[in-house]
């Protein structure tokens, strides 16, 4: 079987539309992951040992179980408890929750890298707890970890095909559909692979430049 370029060109617009869904799902999921990840990182610093242990194991649980099964859980099990979301919303929520576990570790590392003296100085200046966090600690904790955050953004992008399992019309699902309609799997699947490669390589190029920028500072 020979790769049919005309057919490939013909299905490209449809795949590009699906790529848009994929990118949207990635960005929305990442926004959730950022917020939740920061929440886990801050909650883990709670003074109550039991509470911070609980958060630790919760995050550990999310991180060491497969995203696909989490997606299934949210899609099939949560409706049993009356929480019913659309496939896309479910997928975005699952992606966000899963990656929040990774991001919380990144944020934790960033926060712990801020020198103790910064805390002491903030206290000496009579800053409130809230002000210390928002004006002193986080502005120093987050910029150094942005390249790592970027790498997780790419990793998340590469995990979006899992949403095909719950019928979200992202790249892989649309390739499968084209395959089922035309009995040609070679072109759609190859194109999907190439699109992923293109976006990932471009984004990691940008991240490498970000990394260099932070290293020189």
């Amino acid at each position: 079987m020979i790769f049919d370029w005309r057919f490939a060109l013909q299905i490209l617009p449809e795949l590009m539309r699906a790529l848009l869904v994929t990118v949207q799902a990635t960005l929305a999921g990442f926004a959730i992951a950022l917020v939740l990840g920061m929440a886990w990182a801050l909650l883990r610093r709670s003074k109550s040992v039991t509470f911070s242990r609980t958060v630790f194991w919760f995050v550990e649980f999310i991180r060491s179980t497969p995203l696909l099964v989490q997606v299934y859980f949210m899609f099939f099990a949560l409706p049993e408890y009356g929480l019913k979301l659309s496939p896309l919303a479910t997928g975005v929520a699952a992606l966000g929750l899963h990656y929040s576990a990774y991001l919380s570790e990144v944020f934790r590392a960033g926060i712990e890298a801020v020198p103790r003296g910064q805390w002491e100085a903030a206290r000496a200046l009579n800053m409130s707890r809230y002000r210390t966090w928002t004006r002193v600690i986080l502005p120093q904790a987050i910029p150094p970890v942005t390249p790592v955050l970027g790498n997780y953004l790419i990793a998340m992008f590469k995990d979006t095909p899992m949403l095909a399992a719950i019928t979200v019309m992202e790249l892989l699902q649309s390739a499968k559909l084209i395959g089922a309609q035309t009995f040609r799997y070679m072109e759609p699947l190859t194109l999907v692979g190439l699109l992923f490669l293109l976006v990932s390589l471009m984004s990691s190029f940008i991240i490498r430049r970000l990394e260099n920028k932070f290293n020189t500072v």
Binding site: K158, D159, T160, P161, M162, A164, L171, L172, A175, K176, G179, Y185, M186, L189, T190, V192, G193, F196, L197, S200, L201, S204
Partner: peptide, 18 residues
């Protein structure tokens, strides 16, 4: 770069169907 740049699921589908 090929295996890190693409999705594992897409790789599986490609190897199994294409």
């Amino acid at each position: 770069d090929i295996f890190r740049g693409t999705s594992a699921l897409v790789q599986l589908f490609w190897a199994y169907f294409a």
